[in-house]
Design a protein around this nucleic acid. Sequence first.
DNA 1: AGTAGGATAAACT
DNA 2: GTTTATCCTACTT
Length: 202
Amino acid sequence: MRLPREFYDRDALSVARELLGKVLVHEIDGQKLAMRIVETEAYVGKEDKAAHFHGGRRTSRLEVIYGAPGFSYVFLVYGMHHCFNVVTSGKDDPQAVLVRAGQPVLGLEAMAQRRYTKTFGELTGKQIIGLTNGPGKLCQALDIDRSLNGADLCGEGLYLEEGEGVDFRIITTKRVGIDYAEEAKDFPLRFYSEGNAYVSVK
DNA sequence: AGTAGGATAAACT
DNA sequence: GTTTATCCTACTT
């Protein structure tokens, strides 16, 4: 079951929490790369100094976030890593959820190849975890880059599906990598699946 | 287990 | 010219 537009048409905090356990799918040439989401972060409104759109900043790359919910926002950080976000909330209300980590479900060979240029069987235990345990890593594993910025997640190619009802507890804590964000750096806006090996930072 | 530094380019000032 | 929602490697304890 693909998640409907309404799922995304809410505040980022709710969407971030409920995205845990959902499955992110990227179809390439008929091949499915899929990952169960285990860690997310909410970036919520103009008061949030950690967000690109803080203070109501509205530049060309941010237009998608000011648009309709259920679209992707993909950007490049540190000149080499992509970050995948889901746009939430209504038009002109900038909110988004960063997908920070997941566990591979489908297309493991392709992921191993993209991340390490090795077959899955050649990977060490650490490398298997390293496939998708971070925002930049998961984008490399799932072949997500800026060409997918603005993609409709209710369309074809890149979308999210309902997961398999696995039970887990949600840990709520501070976000990662936003030390510049003054008081916002301590906001409890990161969520992850308790005990999951693929979580980027415990 | 922790700390340090470098890679590397788009976006923004 | 500065900053950056990261990752990897190497070195120290």
